[in-house]
Write a protein that binds this DNA or RNA. Structure first.
Lengths: 258, 258
DNA sequence: TTAACAGGTCAACGCCGTTGACATAAGGTG
DNA sequence: CACCTTATGTCAACGGCGTTGACCTGTTAA
């Protein structure tokens, strides 16, 4: 027995496509696309129900026929983003280069839609795209020669590091103009002016700080993680001695990217 | 010539402590503490100007005598969290152990106030506690022998990774009960049941995944970052050859923690 | 041809942050 | 001690937000 306030009907059941006053025919896809466009073109604060309605040429509350609330809409946006990121990744066979590439793509994808990334990057969806990503990354690591426990540990660290930095950097990018400018100014106005006698280490490195703090630390952190992983791999394969090193290779080759 | 809407006076200049209608005497500290209590007890959505005023026993707009706007208040909250974390940290002289300890403390501190951490961990405050943290960490790295550019790069990666994981893990901790349980269930209900022929790598490692995905990946990622840093340090000091390895040691000893 | 009803529209609710004007008690000054 | 300045608490109001319930109307299946 569904309550009267169940305005959202599943997409499959939609039949009547009644146009709005301005003649637009709404759909879940059109709304998500328009929301992404709004976010991209006009920044964080631009995504409100009223403005989205305006951009669509429909009454704002028409959205509630397609999404239960704004959080529901945001999850739909996030899912679309995951799909887009995975779709453009082409692993080439070198585990380190492939993971590096994927990490940077996740990061870049999040930064291109910061608001959506901030709200969604810490959620486990269990949806198809996510599962495909897990399978693929684990495959890359196991085929590289990592034993299963190491493969899982490194997979987890890699993925969460990527998502965590994506969220972090997306969050500062999603700040209102004024706050973002203010933060940039803090490094010049505050840190770069600390006297050497009270803050010797900051004063000595101020020049480097000014340059370095302007960009994301993710590429550096990612490379450090991969470096440590490579060291671990060397350790493991050395210890393995004369043991057969091809135990996980042969027929896994195909299933790498299903 | 300050504009008329400059309601906030610097804390040092405060003299008149006029009590509110309910008799409370306001202060920057009291407001921040009350905000943290609100966040802890009633979640992220509970922090509104009106509710904070209510909790303080003051007119909501009295806050604007202490903080320019809600963002300013948020930065003060963030800085207080940094201060609390730093206050309990006792570096012992081994750079790697000290940074590991500090990283774990940052993470733990954020998780003890998830709502506040989620809102504030990506902000640059430029306030006293943050400055002290930067100075101290840079000191640890430079005294360990890292050249300035490396010290800055590693500082940046270390801090942002700690904050990023803190925010990520705090965010899932801050989820509504139901959503958190649902996410935990996904690993058992979905991933652990995927058949080996369609998802060989997940199936082969399902046992490890179930265990590993339940805890934060931060300790692993932290150790990997420190491992890579140690490798870099060895590289640098080896290349230095016969050069004096104590160039940044002697009199910096005192100023380590001002 | 028609009747049901999905889906677009409208008005209103209760929040939110923020501002400008106002009131008053604190505290320096004589 | 009495005065005056002014910092600081209070109040009313503004515009914007997400969301709801009631209404209206074109589409579609029978």
């Amino acid at each position: 027995m569904t309550s009267m306030s169940d305005r959202v009907v599943p997409p499959a059941a939609r039949r009547r496509r009644r146009p709005t006053k301005t003649g637009v025919v709404l759909s879940e896809e059109l709304i998500v696309e328009t929301a992404l466009r709004l976010l991209k073109e006009h920044g964080a604060d631009a995504l409100t129900v009223r403005r989205l309605g305006l951009a669509l040429g429909a009454d704002p509350t028409a959205l509630y026929r397609y999404f239960r609330d704004t959080d529901d809409l945001l999850l739909a946006i996030a899912d679309e983003l995951i799909g887009r990121t995975l779709r453009t990744w082409r692993p080439a066979g070198d585990w380190r280069a492939d993971l590096r590439d994927l990490g940077l793509r996740i990061h870049a994808g999040a930064l291109s839609h910061p608001q959506a990334a901030v709200l969604s990057s810490y959620r486990v969806t269990g949806r198809v795209h996510e599962i495909e990503a897990v399978e693929t990354i684990l495959g890359v690591l196991r085929r590289a020669g990592f034993p299963d426990p190491d493969a899982v540990r490194i997979y987890h660290a890699f993925v969460d590091q990527s998502l965590a930095f994506a969220a972090l950097d997306a969050a500062s990018l999603a700040l209102p103009r004024a706050a973002r400018d203010a933060e940039a100014g803090v490094w010049r106005a505050t840190y770069a002016r600390l006297p050497a006698d009270t803050h010797p280490h900051i004063a000595a490195t101020a020049r480097h700080l000014l340059v370095d703090m302007r960009r994301s630390a993710y590429p550096v952190a990612l490379d450090m993680l991969l470096t440590a992983a490579a060291a671990r791999l060397e350790e493991v394969t050395e210890h393995a001695g004369h043991a057969d090193p091809s135990h996980a290779r042969a027929e896994d080759q195909e299933s790498a990217r299903p």
